[in-house]
């Protein structure tokens, strides 16, 4: 085990795979000497050289689109899109090309590519640099969508994403980049589609991912002091989703709160709530609650932004409403 930050863990995952597989390369805006907008690829240019860590122009469509062609031709690209908010500039390449190529071709294509992109509010970056948009991707069959919440998961899921033969959107949270933790060394793989119980509890299940997982853990500590023992389930990957793990936890606790930073309407929490209603209704002793951002763009003012972001207080309040 090594102590490293979430950002270092993402980088370590990429490094491990680039050493192991010469077909893995990185392309994106400012990813080379500059090390990426948030520094995630720092040092990889020096280590792997200009043929494998490549700056692109500000051209999101061809960053993702070229990755589709390179992947179909046998490479394993890691394409970086500087903010998840910019995915609108390459949604055709992801949603109509990468996602559908295998199916449209009758199964006779493989598109092993990773699109890495940071999400999340909390840094005063306003409406076009702060969003959480995971449901844009989970809505499109053919894509896998993963959102690590800890340094160890960040590394293990990165390695799994690169090795996966499908297009994977790997969403890293800006507020987690500096989070430190224990990370296994070497080829540490966290399988896609396997949830993780980050805190065991018997009274209520809280499903949360990315930054909200950390906020839910903090909320759970508060709740414990008040006698409510929350189980915190981190799906880690939204597609594929480990719904058995969610149902099993709800069967144990009888209560479910879903926390995400996405806006409420059409957010992925609605999907999880629907699954539990369809397949685990009898387990429920109380209505399912969602703690989410409101249905608004993200404001700039720190006061407004804090009002926007789901927090421990809102999580605790939602949990208490179930008892």
């Amino acid at each position: 085990m090594a102590q490293m930050t979430y950002m270092e863990a993402i980088r370590d995952g990429m490094r491990v795979e680039m050493k192991r597989d010469p077909g893995v390369y990185i392309a994106g805006e400012d990813v080379a000497q500059f090390g990426g907008c948030f520094g995630v690829t720092a040092g990889l240019y020096d280590e792997f050289g200009p043929e494998r860590v490549m700056n692109t122009p500000i051209s999101e469509a061809v960053i993702v689109g070229h990755a589709v062609g390179a992947a179909a031709a046998g490479l394993r690209p890691i394409a970086e899109i500087m903010f998840v908010d910019f995915m609108g500039c390459c949604m055709d390449e992801l949603g109509n090309q990468a996602a559908k190529m295998k199916y449209m071709f009758g199964g006779k294509a493989k598109v092993p590519m990773v699109v890495r992109t940071p999400c999340g509010a909390g840094m005063g970056a306003a409406a076009q640099h702060s969003q959480s948009l995971e449901s844009w991707f989970t809505h499109i069959p053919g894509i896998k969508t993963i959102m690590p919440s800890t340094p160890a998961d960040a590394k293990g899921l990165m390695i799994a994403a690169i090795r996966d033969d499908n297009p994977v959107v790997y969403i890293e949270h800006k507020q987690l980049l500096g989070l430190a933790g224990e990370v296994p060394e070497g080829e540490y793989v966290v399988p896609l589609g396997k949830a993780d119980i980050k805190r065991e509890g018997a009274d209520v299940t809280i499903v949360a991912w990315s930054w909200m997982l950390q906020k839910s853990l903090a909320a759970a500590e508060q709740l414990a002091k008040e006698g409510i023992n929350a189980e915190i389930l981190d799906p880690r990957t939204l597609v594929p989703l480990d719904k058995e793990a969610i149902l099993k936890s709800v069967a144990k606790t009888g209560r479910l709160v879903i926390v995400h930073e996405e806006v409420k309407t059409s957010g992925y929490g609605g999907e999880i709530a629907a699954i539990v209603t369809e397949e685990g209704f009898d387990y429920l002793d109380a209505p399912i609650k969602r703690v989410t951002a409101p249905d608004t763009p993200i404001p700039f003012s720190p006061v407004l932004e804090q009002a926007y972001i789901p927090n421990e207080e809102k999580i605790i309040k939602a949990v208490k409403q179930l008892f």
């Binding site: 061809v62 589709v68 062609g69 390179a70 055709d92 006779k108």
Partner: peptide, 29 residues
């Protein structure tokens, strides 16, 4: 959407202009 990857045919395409980035990527490979 007809394709024959073994013949290097990375597909017809239903989106006008979508083949250019893909060909650029295949050329990169």
């Amino acid at each position: 959407h007809i394709a024959d990857v073994d013949l290097g045919i990375l597909g017809a395409n239903g989106i006008v202009g979508a083949g250019m980035p893909i060909a650029t990527g295949a050329a990169f490979a």
